[in-house]
Amino acid sequence: MKLSDLDSLPKDESGPVFAEPWEAQAFAMAVKLNDAGVFTWSEWAETLGAEIRAEPDRAYYDSWLAALERLVEAKGLISTSERLGRIQDWDAAARATPHGKPIELSRSLPARGTAR
């Protein structure tokens, strides 16, 4: 290692710590919900550990996201139907958005559970 290398930003020799942007978003949401006191870090570790044990071959952040979904529902922040409905809304919005434009949830979308 050369001294001239030292001032560069830290890099991860084994590749990016987040493979895709969604992983970073999922990471940040769990940290912020913990900051907000929605759950303790022990509760988080327990839930994540259970998700990993349930499907050990799944990628790490897939388990992370599954744990996050489970915990926000268990804590009553979001209901399952609300979450699944919102996934459908985003899917519809993405498909209706021309390339190169930001995907936005249109307020004119039909209400969840109707007109589908």
Partner: peptide, 11 residues
């Protein structure tokens, strides 16, 4: 990615 956007927008 849809699951993450759904969670984030609701939260």
């Amino acid at each position: 990615a849809l699951r993450v956007k759904a969670l984030e927008s609701l939260l």
